[in-house]
Nucleic acid binder design. Structure first.
Lengths: 196, 196
DNA sequence: CCTCTACTGGGACGATCGTCCCAGTTCCGG
DNA sequence: CCGGAACTGGGACGATCGTCCCAGTAGAGG
């Protein structure tokens, strides 16, 4: 089968992520990846110079593809606190729907910290941008504004989602997670005031 | 050299943690560990049945040895918000002093999630107990009480420290971290009220 | 001082890793 | 239709992995 290189690279990236999600980064050998993609080893090294090159591309790719999704779709007539709860709950649902995906993201982040710190920094920069935009929009739509710089609130919000992810992956306690989301939303309201 | 098995196990555990901290879990091969400890491979398998056995013991060991340390020593006459700021700042200092240690803890947690979920759960259970105790004590000493169940606040606080760790390991932005700590403390105050 | 056993050193095993090579096949441009 | 380049399959290489074996040594108990 003849497949254009670009398409093959995409297929290998997808296969690599699948393997990492289901069996971990340590198990994502070149052979495991090509097996998942249904190719031969030679095709791997025809498309990529090395396993490291694929992994690095995978990190940027997967980070770039990260969607906002923290902002609920239906927003009319809701309070900011309600928006925060619904946004975080939406994230929790996303996490529950595909825990292995987030686990894979976490493993890739750790790999990036050790091997390509600037990639990890870029990844988190993007998270904070997404959070900033969502917080700004949510405040604007509810007639409130933030009492501390939005990037700082965004950073805190990313902390909460990171912690939510890690702790839920560990204990899978949905009830506790929902309680914590409600508490977080209440707490974050202390950083707002009505718009003058 | 004759060394009692118990002592040898301890030395190997220490060496393993050192290797993981400096070069990552993936680089912590049996050979790397015994080299760090200055032993031979045979001694490793005389003290432990397998590498996995050492890793599992290392997780429980390191979790059990985790200290509170989130509560500042000098507490008289300070507000709860101030205590929260100082506690979190203390944690940040601890993180800055030995980033690789926390990175190693994170890698061990991820390993545990995949290989021994119950160990990871126990680890996070302990974190939350520590946080609960600290929050309870801090509230008691400042004449305040928590408006939501303490375990829920503790869970949120662990989220914040997790996020603090992950984000700081990635961007090493101390200034932003301090701003976020201040915001977190302010936000958490919304979950308190004066004691009746 | 001797002996017996707990313990060590070094080498070896099979498995798996990332990478490479090369003979063959497939298909596009002419 | 056909030549040549893009691409593939399979095998092979050296390195490293976890684990094991066994001859030998050291030191405590007699």
């Amino acid at each position: 089968m003849r497949i254009p290189v670009a398409e093959r690279r995409g297929a290998l990236l997808t296969a690599a992520f699948t393997v990492i999600a289901s069996r971990g980064l340590a198990a994502a050998s070149t052979r495991a990846i090509v097996a998942e993609a249904g190719m031969s080893l030679a095709s791997f090294h025809y498309a990529f110079d090395s396993r490291d090159e694929l992994l690095q591309l995978l990190i940027t790719e997967v980070t770039a593809g990260e969607q906002a999704a923290v902002l609920p779709a239906e927003r009319a007539g809701k309070s900011l606190e309600q928006l925060l709860i619904e946004g975080l709950t939406g994230y929790l649902e996303h996490l529950r729907a595909d825990p292995q995906r987030e686990q894979a993201m976490l493993e890739l982040t750790q790999y990036a910290i050790r091997s390509r710190p600037e990639l990890a920094a870029q990844q988190y920069g993007r998270y904070q941008e997404i959070a900033s935009a969502a917080l700004q929009l949510a405040a604007a739509e509810t007639g409130t504004c933030w009492r501390v710089p939005v990037p700082t609130v965004a950073r805190l919000l990313v902390h909460v989602t990171d912690g939510l992810t890690l702790t839920w992956l560990v204990d899978r306690d949905e009830h506790a997670a929902r309680q914590t989301i409600a508490a977080a939303a209440t707490a974050l309201m202390a950083l707002t005031r009505p718009r003058p």
